[in-house]
């Protein structure tokens, strides 16, 4: 469980600092600081936020902006279905968990082995990213481009390494390795063709097909 918290905090820092980029970009796109913060606090999903300000910056229609942001948000529905049975929360806590359901909180949560660690990982990452992301969005919106590029600090590579470290222990079975390889190929092929956020959904669809057509657990998996 301590490991889940440490993982959550590392991911929160790597992701949260990226908020500077979003804040700066949003103000350049034509949103004011209040609108930028409302979007970041209320929508809270990096891919959808970048997509919405991208459409606004390009002079697109409000309908296109809402539709693009929503399309990219569809993967969060899948994330919610995966983490919800593991979190076991009801009422306002369920609504809060839904709001904090994003790539990072789901990734750290589901990568854990026992239920307590899943909850610790999900909540630490969700709350950590929410706090840092929004703080740095505000900083970026106020300071514009003067803070520099988070890529110079290697934060984009840190996020990639975090996801790799999370999937690493799950590649123990042959079936998992096959699904991971398929996911890599499908995602890499789709990145140039479809909007950001959809390659992840396509990879999930491949896993669903493999899961539904494959035979029940083979012995090496039955013990896990």
């Amino acid at each position: 469980m301590a490991a889940a918290v440490r993982q959550g905090l590392s991911v929160s820092v790597a992701t949260g600092l990226y908020g500077v980029s979003f804040g700066a970009l949003s103000v350049v796109a034509g949103l004011d600081v209040l609108q930028t913060m409302a979007l970041s606090l209320l929508l809270f999903s990096g891919g959808s936020q970048f997509a919405l300000v991208g459409v606004v910056a390009a002079g697109g229609s409000p309908v296109a902006a809402v539709a693009t942001a929503s399309l990219l948000g569809v993967r969060n529905t899948l994330y919610g279905a995966v983490v919800s049975p593991l979190l076991q929360v009801r009422g306002w806590r369920r609504a809060l968990a839904a709001h904090l359901t994003i790539d990072e909180s789901t990734a750290v949560g589901v990568a854990q082995r026992d239920p307590a660690a899943v909850r610790a990982g999900f909540w630490t990452t969700g709350i950590g990213v929410f706090a840092l992301w929004n703080a740095f969005v505000l900083l970026g919106a106020l300071a514009g481009d003067r803070l520099g590029d988070p890529r110079a600090w290697g934060l984009d590579a840190a996020a990639a390494a975090a996801f790799l470290a999370l999937v690493w222990p799950r590649l123990a079975t042959r079936r998992a390795r096959v699904v991971a390889a398929l996911a890599v190929v499908v995602s890499a092929a789709l990145v140039p063709v479809v909007p950001a956020g959809l390659p992840v959904l396509a990879a999930a669809a491949v896993a669903i097909v493999v899961g539904l057509v494959s035979r029940p657990a083979v012995p090496e998996e039955a013990t896990r």
């Binding site: 990568a111 984009d156 999937v167 499908v186 990145v191 950001a196 992840v200 896993a207 493999v210």
Partner: peptide, 22 residues
């Protein structure tokens, strides 16, 4: 359940790709 475990692997693997070369 089994499919859900595979979806997790696919999501994480896909996020690695998108974050590394996207």
């Amino acid at each position: 359940q089994r499919t859900s475990a595979l979806v997790t692997v696919a999501l994480l693997a896909s996020l690695v790709v998108v974050q590394t070369v996207g």
